[in-house]
Simulated assay, not measured.
Amino acid sequence: MRDGFQGDLVQLDGKLATMADAAAEAMRRATRALLTADLLLAEEVLGADDQLDELRAVCEEDAYALLALQAPVAGDLRGVLAVVYCAEKIERMGDLAAHIAGTARRRHPDHAVPAELEQVFTDLGRETAGMADRVASLVRDGGRGGYAELSRTDETVDALHARVLATITSPSWPHDQRVAVALTLVTRFYERFADQAVSVSKRLDFAATGDLPE
């Protein structure tokens, strides 16, 4: 029974890692749609979000079945509960990527991001998608030691977020208020995506070690 439980837990982790892969891809595609005003790509990102919702439901169902049938304790219990917690956070990451794609769709055929901020949003997309990639690798490798690394990346994302806000609130900002409001919202989506990734890494560290990282 013990070997069967471990096999089921490995499969459950695999589904969670697949969710993180999907969130990373959604962020990459959403950023590309945002920067290129690609309506079709934005629609594809929005349509694919349902798949992440379904994966979360599967992860939760499988996790609760393991809890009911195997009654795990200690590290095994932390691992199963971590899947439930992390699946919710990763689904939220997918939602945030979809919100970015939604901004591209609403602004089409105009570009949502002015030329002077394109590099900043390119960097935001790269950093946040990379965080989701790292979450996937942490899930597959046992979840240990990623919190400090992702916290540092989160600081980079926060700095990029601050750059956007400083630019759009500058007296020399040449665009109208509607553009500034849209960018305020969309940069917040990136910042929240990064926060969710950090939360996942923290819970994975706890599941692996029994100690919450500080």
Rank of each mutant, 00 (worst) to 15 (best):
V181L: 14
L52H: 00
C59M: 03
Y64C: 03
G146C: 08
R29G: 01
L46F: 05
T167I: 03
A37H: 11
V45D: 02
V186T: 15
C59S: 02
T209Y: 14
E54V: 10
L204M: 15
H161A: 13
E88Y: 08
A30K: 15
S170A: 15
E149C: 04
S172A: 15
L16C: 09
L66P: 00
S201A: 15
D76G: 08
G14S: 11
A159K: 06
K15T: 09
R203F: 10
A57D: 11
R107Y: 08
V10R: 14
G210P: 05
T167M: 07
A74L: 14
R188P: 14
G47I: 03
A104Q: 07
P114M: 11
P109Y: 00
L69H: 03
S137W: 09
D13Q: 15
G210R: 04
V200Y: 03
V45R: 03
A208E: 12
A82Y: 04
T169M: 08
L39R: 07
A207T: 02
T122Q: 00
D95N: 12
V45W: 09
G142F: 11
R28V: 00
L138E: 07
L124H: 04
D154T: 03
I100P: 05
A74M: 10
E155I: 09
A136E: 05
A132L: 10
L41E: 08
D3T: 09
A97K: 14
E54P: 04
P171Q: 12
C86E: 03
W173L: 13
A182Y: 01
F193D: 00
D154G: 08
G145W: 01
F189I: 02
D49Y: 02
L124F: 06
V120M: 01
A63N: 00
V157D: 06
V186A: 08
A68R: 01
A37F: 00
R78P: 09
A65K: 05
T167D: 12
T36M: 09
V73E: 06
L160V: 07
S170M: 04
A42G: 15
V80L: 01
